[in-house]
Amino acid sequence: MTQPHHFQEPHDNLPLTGRDEARSRSYTNHDKQASPVPVEQESAAAHEQAPVQPETVPVGEAALEISGLVKVFDDKVAVNGINLFVPRGSFFGLVGRNGAGKTTTLSMATGMLPPTEGTVRIAGVDVWSQPLDAKRKVGVLPDGVFLFDRLTGEQLITYAGRLHGLDEKTVASRTADLLRAMDLQDAAGRIVADYSAGMTKKVALAAAMIHAPSLLVLDEPFEAVDPVSASNIQDILKAFVARGGTVILSSHVMDLVQRLCDHVAIMNDGRLLAAGTTGEVRGGLSLEERFISLVGGRHEGGEGLSWLQSL
């Protein structure tokens, strides 16, 4: 039975060298520090002094394992020591405010951005020491990147398949399947530059799936996607998880994460505030309420805008 675990750690202790050894020796050594999901006081305001450093309990095999991950841009600390265990077969949601470090974390986890410190393993393969092996196992939908948009949708998916070294027949049949699954058959012959935002998301998702990865990392996959396509994509992802695949997605939409994901992690200011199964992290509240109580930053609605009223 998995339980959320949160243990205290001095702020300046990150990242720990030799941390890996500790982890591989035993995961259970965190148990004695285990506490319920952190209470509000520990969160937003208090974590300067007493950083909450929760992590999921490793049970079974890891689809993705992050330890001591740090990213410093010039003088800004974007990710401040993250440990995360994503069990194989889970549907994992990563939530946080804008600038919380979600995209930076996912970029480092997928081999797009070299971390300042820390290690990332995808299905046991170290992303930064054996990049090619790791990249065969993961499909990534980055947020806000350009695509080779002078290619048609069909060409783009084919291109992705060929970059992965798949043979011609496999690429052709999978491309046809993916186009059908994403409702892009009619647009297959049009260049991606002419696609709507939602279609672009879908074709990028298809390109991320063509090599049949065991782990899908999706940054904001439903942004700008219409409700029908979103439902279809959700079905595809659920089926993928049901067959043993793992999905990690980041999102701002709490209801969607609550409904879709069996595990969830809450990020703020480059750190994890809570992680675990969705039920445990929620602790009886809705995910949105839980998120806001942990992250803070809410103020009384409409306060000071008394002039904003229709007459």
Partner: peptide
């Protein structure tokens, strides 16, 4: 940033 497709592939 479309170059990310090359970086993400085992190329």
């Amino acid at each position: 940033s479309a170059f990310s497709m090359h970086v993400l592939a085992p190329l």
